[in-house]
């Protein structure tokens, strides 16, 4: 029986080891890497993996948060507390500043989101700090375009992804050689699914922002029956239905483009139970911005999105 062998790694340990290996490849191959941190569960998982990869040393990269200004306050509080506990460097750059500096046009409309504008700030930040690699928490199970992306994904000077010109990626050998001005996006948890992440968080006893668990919240009901938190960042009209519900968040993005799900799951075991029986995918249930077109993610990635 394989389970009885002493020298056998279960699937979470295998995924963890693979992710640590990828992080160390980034540290070993690049001069100025960064870890993109959003305050969501995937990037929180990356931080735990970085601790396992580099402690008792310091992280060989700062955490970088591209702040849209539309974050959940709970996620920001979590972020600041985490950075203090870690004693690592955090760099925050604001989309609002980029909008002013580059005179960008903000999307208008009901649930107008700065999600797409994050790309501009990310590219500015990469240039400012001369980052040559950015570690991100994207997973291949999230979305079809992501299913095709390499673990080391080379981006040109404009941060663009060219799906037709990806480098073959063989074995566990990652080619991080790039020209000046190019950068690599590295995805250590590419092979994890949503459920893998949750199971890992449980196994590692990682704390999360409170909004991942059931709480009472005032929400606007959208035309697609999604629940969007009432905040200063969305436009509420008279015709809107505002309800008070027990909800939790399955993903944590901007308050403008992340929908809540109705839930009474107040602890991690209950959240995992709900995810196992959920009939809707993570992005489908919670992201308002993905439903515009079939190729929304592919297009954003081609434009430099992470």
């Amino acid at each position: 029986m394989r389970q009885m062998s002493k020298y056998y790694l279960n699937y979470l340990d295998q995924l963890e080891s693979e992710a640590i290996h990828i992080m160390r490849e980034v540290a070993g191959q690049f001069e100025r890497p960064a870890l993109l941190f959003s305050g969501g569960k995937d990037s929180i998982t990356l931080v735990r993996l970085a601790e396992k990869a580099f402690r008792p040393g310091k992280f060989p990269f700062p955490l970088v948060h591209i702040d849209t200004g539309h974050n959940f306050p709970e996620a920001l509080a979590y972020r600041d507390n985490l950075v203090k506990e870690l004693d690592e460097k955090l760099i925050v750059r604001y989309v609002g500043d980029t909008i002013q500096r580059q005179k960008l046009t903000e999307p208008k409309g009901k649930f107008a989101s700065r999600n797409a504008l994050q790309t501009y700030t990310l590219l500015e930040t990469i240039e400012e700090f001369k980052f040559d690699a950015c570690i991100g928490g994207a997973r291949r199970d999230e979305e079809k375009a992501r299913a095709k992306e390499r673990i080391f994904s080379v981006r040109d000077e404009f941060g663009q992804w060219d799906p037709k010109r990806q480098r073959p990626e063989l074995w566990n050998t990652y080619n991080g050689k790039i020209h000046k001005g190019e950068n690599v996006r590295a995805f250590p948890i590419s092979n994890w699914t949503e459920l893998d992440v949750w199971n890992y968080i449980k196994k590692e006893n990682i704390s999360l922002p409170s909004i991942y668990f059931a709480h009472e919240r005032e929400c606007v009901v959208t035309a697609d029956n999604q629940l969007v938190a009432v905040s200063d960042f969305i436009q509420i009209d008279k015709a809107d239905t505002v309800v008070k519900k027990q909800v939790r968040y399955r993903t944590v993005g901007d308050m403008t483009c992340t929908a809540a799900v109705e839930s009474s799951a107040s602890n991690i075991d209950d959240v995992i139970k709900e995810i196992i029986v959920s009939k809707i995918s993570e992005r489908g249930e919670t992201r308002i911005d993905d439903q515009v077109s079939e190729a929304a993610m592919e297009d954003r990635k081609k434009g430099g999105y992470f």
Partner: peptide, 23 residues
């Protein structure tokens, strides 16, 4: 389900390796 890129869908072919997950 497995054709992730616009060009693949348009041409009805698979160009690249895609990774899929189930348990």
């Amino acid at each position: 389900l497995t054709d992730g890129l616009r060009a693949e869908r348009e041409q009805g072919i698979t160009i690249d390796v895609a990774y899929k997950y189930f348990s």
